[in-house]
Simulated scan of single mutants.
Amino acid sequence: MQRLPHQHAVQESGFTLVELLVALALMALMAGMAWRVLAGMQTAMEVNRRHADAVLTLEAGLGQWGADLDALVALPQTRTLEWDGRALRLTRRLPGDEGTVVVCWTRAERDGVSQWLRWQSAPVATREAWLTAWTAANAWAQGADTSTRTREIRITALPQWQLFYYRTGAWSNPLSSAGTGPGVEANTSLPEGIRLVLTLPTTHPLPGTLVRDWARNHTAGASP
């Protein structure tokens, strides 16, 4: 009988149960760490997005503030601009000859937070319509009429704001009669400039005091 050559047993290598459990534990740990990193990145992206939105919204509000003042218009037997210490009402032209509206800026509480707000009327074509809109703006600013809040836009949280008028070479309180001239009531004459001082909350990306100056050009407040 032919003798078969000696066959060596092949030793197969593999993971033991302990090694497998250790590997699974390490993979779970790495997955948990990766999840925390991803969650942290997601949170950072969300915070950055909210900050960017807040800054862009504030810039849009300041741009609208300047646009309103640039479009001031004086109509017969109406007021162009009036500050009562709480709200600024103004009469302005709409772009593209779309008419005239009354705009009001104020600071008021909404949902428990003091907000910088802007209100705009429907276009007015007569003095009676203007007077109705002017009165409605005042009622809205004083909180006496909540039905017109659908016309307001919330700009940003705002703990405090101030206005100053530039007249006769100096900044002064808009409610003072300085610079109005003889025979002219305080707060009815158009100033040469308006200084807006906003105090933004600590939660805003740009906390602290923000100052924006507006200068009237030679056509501001002129009748079309």
Rank of each mutant, 00 (worst) to 15 (best):
A34E: 14
V37F: 00
V55R: 09
G99L: 10
Q77E: 12
T43Q: 14
E98A: 15
G40L: 03
V101I: 13
R79S: 08
R86C: 03
T57H: 02
L69E: 05
V37A: 12
V22S: 05
L75P: 00
V55Q: 13
M41P: 00
A52E: 15
P95I: 00
A23V: 04
R50N: 13
T57D: 05
W35P: 01
V37Y: 01
L88E: 12
C104M: 08
A39S: 12
L26S: 08
E46Q: 14
A25C: 04
D70R: 10
G96K: 03
V55I: 15
N48S: 13
R50Q: 15
T57L: 02
E59M: 02
V103T: 13
A44N: 11
L81M: 06
A25Y: 00
L75K: 08
A74P: 01
A44G: 13
M27L: 15
H51W: 05
H51M: 07
L58F: 00
T43Y: 10
A54V: 01
L90D: 01
W83A: 09
H51G: 09
V101K: 07
G96F: 01
R93L: 14
L29E: 00
G96P: 12
L29M: 15
W83S: 12
P95M: 00
M30E: 06
L90E: 00
E59A: 07
T43F: 06
Q77H: 13
A28P: 03
A74D: 12
Q77N: 09
V22A: 11
L62T: 07
G99C: 09
L88D: 11
L24N: 08
L56C: 01
T106Y: 06
L62K: 00
A87W: 11
V73R: 01
G66V: 09
D70W: 05
C104V: 05
G66W: 03
L69Q: 05
A34V: 00
L20R: 11
A54R: 07
R93G: 15
G40E: 14
L69K: 03
P95T: 02
A34C: 02
G40H: 08
W35C: 04
L94V: 01
T91I: 05
V101S: 11
L38C: 00
A60L: 04
T91N: 04
A54P: 05
G96S: 10
L72C: 04
L20W: 02
A87D: 15
A23D: 01
G32Y: 04
V102K: 14
M33L: 13
D53G: 03
V103K: 07
R92T: 09
T78F: 04
E59N: 13
A52H: 13
R79Y: 07
P76Q: 13
L21C: 02
Q64R: 14
H51E: 14
T80D: 01
G85K: 14
A60N: 09
A87F: 05
L20G: 14
A39F: 03
D84P: 11
D70S: 10
